[in-house]
Computed example of a mutant assay.
Amino acid sequence: MKGQKQQYVTIKGTKDGLTLHLDDTCSFQDLVAELEEKLALNQRHEEGGPYLPVRLKVGNRYVTSDQREELQALIRSKKHLAVDSIESNVISKEEALELKRETEIVSASKVVRSGQILKVQGDLLLIGDVNPGGTVIAEGNIFILGALRGIAHAGCNGNRQAVIAASIMKPSQLRISDIMNRAPDYHQDDRNEMECAYIDEFGKIVVDRLQLLTHLRPNLTRFEGGI
């Protein structure tokens, strides 16, 4: 007796819609054929039902842009269904390199002088000063082992959790995401310690002792188990 045909598509209904678990070992053509068959069967049961978002989980299969479009078109062709997300455990080399650039710490040992701009994609670790008229910009956090007397802009792509830290915090301007503070509300004349700037719960940039960062941003460290 022949064994039962292996199922390539498993459909699970949730309160948020449908989740489709797709086999990652079969051919893409076989996967699409079974997906169309099962969606047609499921549609007969859901005829006249409410709009349902669909999440596709493709496991360890890399899905090209053309294959994504094919899956989306197939689901859009069914009434009351629309793709909410396509989730894969696999990304391309280009996507991996972009992720690395966005999350890595870029270190530089220099003085950023007036008129100069230093910009990085990830976090910036600057060993040196930022002079008045100099600018440092990062998509992530900014850490300065030196004096910040110019402009610092962290989280420039919209990350409001980004922070700015400096050994000597006397900036002409601080920016985090879309929030700007030209005259930080603090006095460092009597301080001799590193400080950090962050956006508080009221949406304002404040400057305080660096030691507070472990409590304010517990996920800042990338070491296992935290600091």
Rank of each mutant, 00 (worst) to 15 (best):
M1N: 10
K2Y: 07
Q4V: 09
K5S: 13
Q6M: 15
I11M: 13
T14C: 08
D16V: 03
G17P: 08
L18E: 08
H21P: 03
C26D: 04
S27H: 11
E36S: 11
Q43A: 14
E46D: 10
G48H: 10
G48L: 14
G48N: 15
Y51V: 13
L56N: 00
Y62E: 15
V63C: 05
T64M: 00
T64V: 00
D66I: 01
L71G: 03
Q72G: 05
Q72V: 02
L74V: 00
R76C: 12
S77A: 14
L81I: 04
A82T: 06
A82H: 12
E87A: 04
V90S: 10
V90F: 10
I91S: 15
I91H: 12
S92H: 11
K93C: 11
E94W: 07
L99G: 09
E104L: 14
V106R: 14
V106Y: 11
S107D: 04
S114P: 02
S114W: 08
S114A: 14
L118M: 05
K119D: 12
Q121R: 12
L124H: 04
I127F: 05
I127W: 01
G134L: 10
G134D: 04
T135D: 02
V136I: 09
G140R: 00
G140P: 07
L145E: 13
L148H: 02
G150I: 02
I151S: 00
A152L: 03
A152R: 00
A154W: 03
N157K: 06
N157F: 10
N159R: 06
R160T: 12
M169W: 06
K170L: 04
K170V: 02
P171S: 09
Q173D: 07
Q173H: 11
R175V: 09
I176F: 05
M180K: 11
A183N: 06
P184H: 02
P184M: 01
Y186V: 12
Y186G: 13
D189F: 05
D189G: 15
D189A: 04
D190L: 15
R191Y: 09
E193A: 13
C196D: 07
I199G: 01
K204R: 10
V206L: 14
R209W: 10
L210G: 01
Q211I: 10
T214E: 15
H215W: 04
L216Y: 12
L216P: 02
P218I: 13
T221A: 09
G225M: 12
I227Q: 09
